[in-house]
Design a protein around this nucleic acid. Structure first.
Lengths: 125, 125
DNA sequence: TTAAGTGCAAAATCTTTGCAAATGT
DNA sequence: ACATTTGCAAAGATTTTGCACTTAA
């Protein structure tokens, strides 16, 4: 079984406070105690396995992890994500991904990222 | 101005023949002459700049490049891509990405990949 | 001729892994 | 006790860059 550790707690705290999808380096920065990079990756991946977090891979090839606030009940991760090309923030959009499955294919998961300017960065031009 | 070189020709040939989105390593494999890795990346990125190819970043964080056959005229790259979790093939789907833009946001581009089993791999189970 | 393209080697990023030590239950 | 978690250091994988040489137009 899984254990409760300071690392897990710290990682979840950061992600909860942020409300955005964060990468390992940002999470590490925001944790006050010193936690090894590899450990953070392992904790993040375990959380994904357990369905606590979901992983988004952005156009820069990096992994981002999020607690999705909008899908607490159904835990459906098929929503769009948004990446701001100015502030590099990545967030979950409350917009479901709709697609028609091509005949003969089956879909297991989605990874959809829209890139553009977020509300804040659009205003500060 | 851009020049015609054997490298460009070879890269385009491979991508045209394939009809799928390919990564640098696969392209290098399929070219008979020996072309440096860095050169292939530079050619691919130039093609993207020129709108000849488009780049997809898959869930594995890797870059894939495709000539999109379905958008020759309009050159609209906002379609879904499909990655087969068995054969690792990535292809452009003729399915446009539809989304509602959140208020205050603007969208510059999309990167949407559906993962599952392709037609061939579904049948061969 | 000369700007564009190439090869090579090295750097830069990001992520994972093996192993021994530490820790939660 | 003992399986899980962690730190460290190293390896892996992918992509980019600097620089000198080559080549297409």
């Amino acid at each position: 079984m899984r254990r409760n550790t300071p690392t897990k707690e710290a990682v979840l705290n950061v992600l909860t406070k942020s409300g955005k999808a964060l990468s390992q380096d940002t999470i590490e920065e925001r944790i006050d105690i010193d936690i090894n990079r590899a450990t953070i990756y392992r904790v993040l991946n375990r959380f994904c396995d357990d369905g606590v977090l979901h992983k988004i891979v952005a156009e820069n090839g990096k992994q981002y992890f999020a607690i999705c606030n909008d899908c607490e009940e159904e835990h459906n991760h098929d929503h769009f994500h948004f990446r701001c090309s100015t502030c590099e923030t990545i967030e979950c959009l409350p917009i479901e991904v709709n697609y028609s499955i091509p005949v003969g294919y089956s879909i297991e998961k989605t990874n959809c990222v829209l890139t553009g300017k977020c509300k804040d960065c659009s205003n500060n031009l």
